[in-house]
Design a protein around this nucleic acid. Sequence first.
DNA 1: ACTCATATTGAATGATTATTCAATACAAAA
DNA 2: TTTTGTATTGAATAATCATTCAATATGAGT
Lengths: 214, 214
Amino acid sequence: MNISPKKISDHQLEDQEISINHQKLIDATIETIAKKGLGDTTIAQVAKKAMVSQGYANFRFKSKENLLLSSLKFLSDEYKNSWQRIFEDNNLDPVGRVIKIIENDFSGKIANRNKIAVWVSFYSEVKFRPSYLSICQKQDEIYSSQMEKLIKEVNILSNQSFLTSREISETYLSMVDGLWQRILFDPKMYSHVFCKDLIKKYFRNIYADEKRFV
Amino acid sequence: MNISPKKISDHQLEDQEISINHQKLIDATIETIAKKGLGDTTIAQVAKKAMVSQGYANFRFKSKENLLLSSLKFLSDEYKNSWQRIFEDNNLDPVGRVIKIIENDFSGKIANRNKIAVWVSFYSEVKFRPSYLSICQKQDEIYSSQMEKLIKEVNILSNQSFLTSREISETYLSMVDGLWQRILFDPKMYSHVFCKDLIKKYFRNIYADEKRFV
DNA sequence: ACTCATATTGAATGATTATTCAATACAAAA
DNA sequence: TTTTGTATTGAATAATCATTCAATATGAGT
């Protein structure tokens, strides 16, 4: 099994190369869905955008279904990483964390029209594709429960007891989903600032003493 | 131009027959989208479910696109009629109207999983099909503005001034969209009762004196 | 019974597209 | 240089569908 350093290096390079094409195809898939819609996304278009041959795209991902799945997984992980970093940031107090969460959910990286278009496309197929559901659902459950725990802390600190942490977090999560969808309809009216302000006002109403919800 | 009574009667019958097939096809389209998804809905399946030939379905609606459009229009009108009746009901006071609106938005007729699946399917294509957008957007604007006016009345009656009627109605509308989407993911958790209670609690928190938000 | 107009059929067509695979490019090892 | 294994191509295949249309059914008027 004597493996030479060269060989390892080669292998790593190989993996990197593979990885580059892999990611190029996923990026191209997301761009294509964002531009044409899930239904009008063909392997030929994706391959062209990724600048590889059509045959290669299929070979690399085994099937179109698998390419779509991988793209959804990528988006889902990207989102997860963004909020996980906030929950794990020990420099933040509960209210500061909530504010960061809101800002993240309506940041240019997460809530831009292209990515929302992709999200909503997959959401709309969730009922028919258990594989989509399983990717989204698990992470959503974690997000929900983390959010509820966080709100519980804020509730305690602010002596708020009329609304339960569950109620507040469910309201927040449904508002985010709804606003994302509305961004698709009318991105001018539902600007990031508008959405963030609306949600902050919601919190401000609940936690009247907390001046940070602008 | 002497038209005999018989002839008129025939003509009406003819129209009715046409109308029956027309509606059978639209119903079948909605059912098929709800069962298979927009992307996997074929004219053949719809025609089979409506018990007419494939060729007829195409002939009658001129194109698949047009059949889908007509189906969206039908759903959209059905929804509009349901809330318009509430806004026009003079027996209701503002708060009573809000409660009826909430109940309507999560009634079995409107917020069932099949219809939501169809809604979300069309929503997800809105960015790519201006024709879908134009059907949805206009009615949504009316609903929004009616809702805002209604909330303004409630605000005045209850001396609530921290949240504007715009803010409350936008919050309500985005919550409804978000909750509808969540019903697709997890209809058990997001039951109609759960959704209605969540929203009523939101209003109860704003209008603390109003006991009718359960 | 016959004619005519309209409604409806269903098989044929043509377009689109995922998938396959034999052929080729390429680069590393000998 | 030659060999060998892997990466990549792109043309061929096969399946799926929307759409068309010639043929047929239906039923009212004469």
